[in-house]
Simulated scan of single mutants.
Amino acid sequence: MQLLFAALHPFTSQRSFIMTPLRQRMLEDMGIRNLAENTQLSYLQQVSLYARHFERSPEALGPQEVRDYQVHLTKTRKLAPSSVSIATAALRFLYKVTLKRDWMPDDIPMPKKPFRLPVVLSPEEVAHFLACVDSLKQRTILTTAYAAGLRVSEATHLKVTDVDSQRMMLRVDQGKGSRDRYVMLSPRLLEALRSYWKIVRPKTWLFPGHIPGRPITTDAVGLACRKAQRAAGIAKPITPHSLRHAFATHLLESGTDVRRI
């Protein structure tokens, strides 16, 4: 049976989705609403896995199948609530927006995520961790993520022209929510960026990747982060996003106004 959504193995398969009317319509609906590219890819992937599970078109499925699939994700695959929420959001978009089904919100219930306080690194731990990053480029990008409180996707997409040393600002182009914004550029970060630039001499992207004309990937930064954590011997979980949490916490502890943070 040929599904309206072809299955795609997460992040590894080189096969593309079969272009079908339903997939095309959902893609157009997401584009009209200016959903982020990663969100669009995630939603398409989740709907494909859903269709593959039942081996039927999503158009032929209803609230009972959605419920059964959520039970499957929770009980059989034992996914975390956050992962089930991603699948649920994709199905809500498909049925509410693209297929325009007149269902009640409880027909596709959203799992409640448990609230957990993040494990925050101390300033000393951050300094020790960054010192263990063996690549200059990776150390500078992780330093930038911490010192400016950037998401890893924002740090990887910085351009040389985004560094405004006159106003002591970094321009973040199309960050989360497709919004441009400026963030603080501290003198120490500016010094680190200048030292990095003198050695690497990037032209367009501040942190270029291996593919000409493209920035470094977030996966490459994540790999460097894990490698540095092992070298640092820090038991706390460390991800690029951990540095963003540490940035906000350290500012708060230093007396910075919470509205400014």
Rank of each mutant, 00 (worst) to 15 (best):
6 A>Y: 07
7 A>E: 12
7 A>V: 12
7 A>D: 13
8 L>P: 03
8 L>N: 11
10 P>F: 03
11 F>W: 07
13 S>G: 15
14 Q>R: 15
17 F>W: 15
17 F>T: 03
19 M>Y: 08
22 L>C: 13
22 L>P: 05
26 M>D: 11
26 M>N: 12
27 L>C: 08
27 L>S: 15
28 E>L: 13
29 D>N: 08
31 G>A: 09
38 N>C: 05
39 T>D: 06
46 Q>F: 08
47 V>Q: 06
48 S>C: 08
52 R>P: 02
56 R>F: 01
56 R>C: 03
57 S>I: 10
58 P>S: 12
62 G>I: 02
69 Y>E: 02
69 Y>P: 01
70 Q>D: 10
76 T>W: 05
80 A>F: 06
81 P>I: 02
81 P>F: 12
86 I>F: 05
87 A>K: 08
89 A>V: 11
90 A>V: 13
91 L>V: 02
92 R>G: 00
99 L>V: 06
99 L>S: 11
101 R>A: 12
102 D>C: 04
103 W>H: 00
104 M>A: 15
105 P>A: 10
105 P>Y: 00
106 D>L: 05
106 D>V: 09
107 D>K: 09
112 K>D: 07
120 V>L: 13
121 L>R: 05
121 L>Q: 08
123 P>D: 06
124 E>R: 15
127 A>K: 15
129 F>T: 10
131 A>P: 05
133 V>I: 09
134 D>Q: 13
135 S>L: 00
138 Q>E: 01
146 Y>M: 02
151 R>E: 13
153 S>D: 11
153 S>E: 13
154 E>K: 10
154 E>P: 04
155 A>V: 04
159 K>E: 14
160 V>S: 01
162 D>L: 11
163 V>H: 10
164 D>W: 07
165 S>W: 07
166 Q>L: 14
167 R>H: 12
167 R>C: 07
168 M>Q: 15
170 L>I: 15
170 L>N: 04
171 R>D: 04
172 V>F: 03
173 D>V: 15
175 G>Q: 06
179 R>M: 09
181 R>I: 11
184 M>E: 08
185 L>P: 07
186 S>N: 10
186 S>T: 14
187 P>Y: 02
187 P>L: 12
187 P>G: 02
188 R>A: 05
189 L>M: 01
189 L>N: 12
190 L>Q: 15
190 L>R: 13
190 L>F: 05
191 E>T: 11
192 A>P: 05
196 Y>E: 09
198 K>G: 11
198 K>S: 14
198 K>Q: 14
200 V>P: 00
200 V>A: 00
205 W>L: 01
206 L>F: 07
209 G>Y: 01
209 G>S: 11
211 I>E: 14
213 G>T: 10
215 P>G: 14
216 I>K: 00
217 T>S: 15
224 A>V: 00
226 R>A: 12
229 Q>K: 15
233 G>L: 08
233 G>T: 07
235 A>F: 06
236 K>V: 11
236 K>A: 14
238 I>G: 07
240 P>Y: 01
241 H>L: 04
242 S>W: 09
244 R>L: 04
244 R>V: 06
246 A>M: 06
250 H>F: 05
253 E>L: 01
256 T>K: 09
258 V>Y: 05
259 R>F: 06
261 I>W: 07
